[in-house]
């Protein structure tokens, strides 16, 4: 286990090109994944994949921010940086899941929502805000898994859930350590130092009670033994889902409300 890695070491592991991506986990954990496309408003954003699949024998809806492993794949996936259409597709599929009573599992792996001109013209802020607002009231269990880089509102947009799992070397942050360093230290080269102060590792965030569970990785990251990590993650998802499915849907969303309501309440 990689218990004594620095936060910056984990940032580097989380960003590694050969680190398993959302579709790797989706293919391993679920059966018969059928990808569904489009936001019904403008387009289909390939940086977010979504669809329906079986978890064991239960139909579920699966959403994932998808990075590439090669430059070519990354160009196609926009490096995992969604446009508003990505969030609107995700929300469409999640509302569809609620309609048919399917639990939702989301995979988070993004350097952030794409800061481009088109994204602004088509309401990036609105897309993220609406996704969080509506997710908070969907009456089906939602499990979110941060598998790599969970950066800023672009990650949180699909991370409003009943249970939040983090892979051990994933990071979840308000923005990249480089961005943080350039804003607060006026020096983006201090990103290593920033990473240590930002409390972005799975262990930090478990301590802060923002995430619920950590799935361990081999010493040099999930790519070293993908099957083991994916299998452990699958077990965690199934265990959580069994508990969540026993809850009355009204209680479920009340507890989800309280989960976020309490963050920063102790003032």
């Amino acid at each position: 286990m990689s218990n004594n890695l620095s936060a910056w070491d984990r940032v580097l592991l989380a960003r590694k090109a050969d680190r398993p991506k959302a579709l790797d986990y989706i293919e391993y954990i679920f059966n018969d994944f059928m990808e569904l496309h489009g936001d019904r408003l403008y387009g289909d954003d390939k940086s977010i994949v979504g669809g329906i699949a079986y978890l064991e024998d239960m139909p579920v809806t699966v959403i994932g921010e998808q990075k590439g492993k090669t430059t070519k794949e990354n160009m196609e996936r926009n490096f995992g940086m969604p446009e508003p259409e990505g969030y609107r597709k995700a929300l469409r599929l999640m509302k569809q899941a609620a309609k048919f009573g399917r639990p939702i599992i989301t995979f988070i792996d993004t350097p952030g929502a794409y800061p481009g001109m088109g994204a602004e013209e088509r309401g990036q802020g609105e897309a993220i805000a609406r996704s969080m607002m509506e997710m908070s009231r969907l009456k089906v269990p939602i499990i979110a898994v941060v598998i790599g880089e969970g950066s800023s509102g672009g990650a949180l947009a699909i991370c409003v859930a009943d249970k939040i799992i983090m892979l051990e070397n994933a990071v979840y942050s308000i923005l990249s350590p480089e961005g943080f360093a350039s804003i607060l230290y006026k020096d983006s080269s201090k990103s290593k130092e920033a990473a240590e102060h930002m409390k972005i590792t799975s262990y930090d965030l478990k301590k802060l009670n923002i995430i619920d569970e950590i799935v361990k990785e081999p010493d040099n990251g999930a790519q070293e033994d993908f099957e083991k990590v994916a299998e452990d993650l699958k077990k965690s998802i199934i265990k959580d889902l069994k508990k969540l499915l026993k809850e009355n849907p009204d209680n479920l969303i009340e507890e989800r409300y309280e989960k976020y309501r309490k963050i920063g309440r102790d003032l």
Binding site: G153, L156, Y172, I174, I200, L208
Partner: peptide, 22 residues
């Protein structure tokens, strides 16, 4: 979001949005 409070700040986005859902 306020940098100095890290992810706690980010979570306020979810918190305020879910209150508006109610």
């Amino acid at each position: 979001a306020r940098m100095q409070e890290g992810l706690i700040s980010l979570m306020q986005m979810a918190k305020t949005s879910e209150a508006l859902a109610k």
